[in-house]
Amino acid sequence: MTKIVHVVGAIIHNEEGNILCAQRSASMTLPGYWEFPGGKIEPGEIPQTALLREIKEELHCDIAVGQFVEETVYRYDSFTVRLETYFAEIIKGTPIAYEHSELKWVPFKELFSLQWAPADIPAVERVIQQCKKGFTSN
């Protein structure tokens, strides 16, 4: 039986339609891949509470958690990830990469210019669809 890791990710956006992307550091699994910041859901936590805690720990920011985006189950070689993602906005602080090697604000249309961790790809696709609906004025 493969170990299942339940994690949550924040799709932090700004008013211009840019999304905060985080590059995994050399000390993390899948180093160099990009992901949405977040982390493990602790026993007894709901995803939204875990997201508030993780973003405070990882980026030293306070966020408002918004709409649910995507749930993905992805099997890596040695474990399986269950990733739940939510839109979020920073309400206090400026994100600083304490655990990641780099943070980057990326226009939603250019998200696929980054090399994403496989578990994050369905959420990236959903974000692009959602942002096209919300940010285009046709």
Rank of each mutant, 00 (worst) to 15 (best):
L20K: 10
G38I: 04
T49N: 15
L51F: 02
T29V: 10
E45N: 03
A22W: 00
E57W: 09
L59Q: 04
F68T: 00
N18G: 12
I55T: 12
P43W: 13
E54R: 15
L20G: 07
E15H: 10
E54A: 11
I63M: 03
Q48M: 07
V69H: 07
C61A: 13
G32S: 00
L20V: 08
F36T: 05
S25L: 01
A64F: 09
E58I: 01
E16R: 14
T49M: 15
G17S: 14
P43Q: 13
P43A: 14
G44H: 09
T29Y: 13
E54S: 10
P37H: 01
A50I: 00
H60T: 12
R24W: 03
E58D: 12
A50R: 03
G17K: 14
G38V: 04
L52R: 09
V69N: 11
K40Y: 07
H60Q: 15
E57V: 07
C21I: 09
E58K: 11
P43V: 08
G17T: 14
E35V: 15
I46F: 10
K40C: 05
G32W: 00
Q67Y: 10
L30K: 05
C21H: 06
A50C: 04
P47N: 01
G32A: 00
E58P: 04
V65Y: 07
E42R: 13
N14W: 09
T29D: 12
I19K: 11
M28L: 04
E58L: 06
E35F: 12
F36N: 02
L30N: 06
E15S: 14
Q48A: 06
E35R: 14
I41V: 02
V69Y: 04
N18K: 15
I41A: 03
E42H: 12
S27A: 09
I55K: 09
A22L: 01
Q23E: 12
N14L: 08
D62A: 11
L20M: 11
P43R: 14
G66F: 07
R24Y: 01
C61N: 10
A22D: 01
F68I: 00
L20C: 08
F36V: 05
L59E: 04
N14K: 12
P47W: 02
E58S: 07
K40P: 02
P37L: 01
V65K: 05
P31I: 02
N18Q: 15
K40V: 05
R53C: 04
